[in-house]
Design a protein around this nucleic acid. Structure first.
Lengths: 243, 243
DNA sequence: CGTACGCTTGAGCCCCCTCAAAAACGGTGG
DNA sequence: CCACCGTTTTTGAGGGGGCTCAAGCGTACG
C-alpha cells in the first residue's frame, strides 16, 4: 500500500477564480475560507499520502464514496475508452478538487503524477456539512464553475488550435503554478511524461515532441532537459493569440 | 427588440443527472425543487422571450449581470477567437442554465437556435437567495457538476473520436430531448444548421455533411430531409462503442 | 419569381497519425 | 563508480483523414 496517514495538517485551500465577482486590484488565485470552516472541514477528512509516482488514487467505474482535495502534488484524471485509448480530462494542482462522479460512480480514474498529499472527504458527511454551511457550499459552486470554464477552454483549444498552440496553452497553464515554475529563471519543471501530455492534448507523444521542437525553433522556449523548460511567456502568449 | 415580457409562467426545472446519489429504479432527468422554492425563484426572475431564430441573448466580454435558465427552445453558446474562428462550447436545452462568467464578465456568447423562453436571474439576488436556501444551492452544485461532466465527455470525444463518431454521439445526445425526438417514428428534428454542428464538433460544415453520408451509408440513420433524421439508436451506440 | 442562405459534392493538399528504431535518461545492483 | 536495462524522448518515413477552395443544388422567404 503506497499510502499512509499523516501528522501535519497542510492548509485547506481551494484554487478558483471567481465567476460573478469582478476583480479589483491584484488577482487572487484561491478562495478564502474562514479558519473555523477550515478546521471543521479538516475534521471531516482523512489525510492520505501517495508516495510513489503512478499510484492510482481512484478508478473509473468504482463506487464513488469520497471527494478528494489535492493538498500537494500533481494528479492526472483520465478516461479509458473501450478500445483502450486514454484521454486525460484534466490535470489537478494543489487546491483542486477531484473525484467526479455520476450516479454514485467515478467517471474517470485519477493517478498521482508526483508524490501527493490529499484530503479525502466521505461524500455523505461532506454533503451534509455543505448543506449546514451555505457559505462553504458557495465556495464549492464557484469551484465547480471554475472547473467548468477550464474544461470549456480546453474544448476550444481542441476544436480550433493546432498541436503546437495547444502545447503552448498547456505550458502557459503550468507556468501559473508556483511550485513547478521558477519565476526568477522562468524555468518550468514539467511533472508529466510526453505520453501524459499527448493524452491530454488529444494527440500522440511523437507529435508532442515535434511540437516542442517547433516552439523551440521559433524561440518561444528552450529545452534545458526534456522535463525542464525555459519559457518565454510573452512570446508564447502572442503565438497563441495569433491563432 | 426581439424579446418581450410574458404572461404564463413555464415550469422551473433543472436538467441534471445526480453526481453522488446512485440511481434506484427509473432514471430521472431533472432535479426536484419544492413548489415553494420554484415560486420564490420565479419571483426573482424575469421571463423573456426571444422570438426570432439567431437572436443574441448575451455577448462574450459583456458585463455579466444575469444567469439564464432556459425554459423552452435551444440555445448555442459559442466562443469567438481572435482569428474569427468560432467554437460552440455547448448546446442548451430546456432546464439548462447558461451565462457562464469569469470575474464578472461573460466568457461566451449565447444565441437562440430556435424561438426561446428564458428565466433571467439577476446574479446578486440569485446568489443571496442560494445562500439563504442551501437545498436549492445544492441543486446548483449538482447542475454545475453535471455540466462539467458533459464538457469532459465532449473533451474525450474531441480528443479520441473521428468526426463520424463525434456526430453519432451528438445525435444520440439530441435524441434524449423529447420535444425534438419523436419516439414513435424515431425521428429527430435537428434544430441547428450544419455550421452550428461543425463548430460544435470542431470541424467544417463539409465534413459534417460527409459524416452524415457515412452514417447513412452504414445504415445508422436515414435523412428524411436535411434537418429530420430517422435514427437507429442501438446501431449508433454500437458504432460509437466500437471506437 | 428571384435571391440569399443552407446543404452537398468534388479535387487537391497538408497536418498529423502510425509504425519503426535509435538515442538519451535514470535507476539499480555489482 | 560504472555497466546494464527499462523507460522516456527523439527522429524518420509513409499514408490517410480532414481542411480548404470552388462550384452546383435545393429551399425558404421576401
Amino acid at each position: 500500500m503506497n499510502q499512509a496517514a499523516r501528522r501535519g495538517h497542510p492548509d485547506i485551500r481551494i484554487r478558483a477564480v471567481k465567476a460573478w465577482t469582478p476583480e479589483h486590484g491584484r488577482e487572487s488565485t484561491h478562495l478564502t475560507l474562514s479558519a473555523s470552516d477550515k478546521a471543521e472541514l479538516s475534521r471531516l477528512a482523512e489525510i492520505i499520502e501517495y508516495k510513489t509516482v503512478g499510484s492510482q488514487i481512484l478508478f473509473q467505474g468504482q463506487k464513488a464514496s469520497f471527494l478528494y482535495l489535492l493538498a500537494d502534488g500533481v494528479v492526472g484524471s483520465n478516461h479509458i475508452l473501450n478500445g483502450g485509448d486514454r484521454q486525460i480530462v484534466s490535470f489537478y494542482w494543489p487546491g483542486d478538487l477531484f473525484g467526479l462522479a455520476e450516479k454514485g460512480v467515478y467517471v474517470n480514474s485519477a493517478e498521482a503524477l508526483t508524490p501527493c498529499v490529499v484530503y479525502r472527504f466521505p461524500i455523505g458527511k461532506l454533503e451534509q456539512f455543505l448543506l449546514d454551511n451555505p457559505k462553504v457550499q458557495h465556495s464549492f459552486v464557484i469551484k465547480a464553475v471554475h472547473d467548468l470554464r477550464s474544461a470549456q477552454r480546453q474544448l476550444v483549444a481542441m476544436g480550433r488550435f493546432d498541436i503546437a498552440r495547444r502545447l503552448a496553452i498547456f505550458l502557459l497553464d503550468c507556468s501559473g503554478h508556483e511550485h513547478y515554475f521558477d519565476l526568477a529563471a522562468q524555468a518550468l519543471t514539467v511533472p508529466m511524461t510526453r505520453y501524459h501530455i499527448a493524452d491530454y492534448l488529444g494527440t500522440s507523444a511523437e507529435s508532442v515532441t515535434r511540437a516542442f521542437g517547433l516552439l523551440e525553433s521559433k524561440g518561444l522556449l528552450h529545452r534545458l532537459t526534456a522535463r525542464t523548460l525555459e519559457l518565454k511567456l510573452a512570446e508564447l502568449r502572442t503565438f497563441v493569440d495569433a491563432e
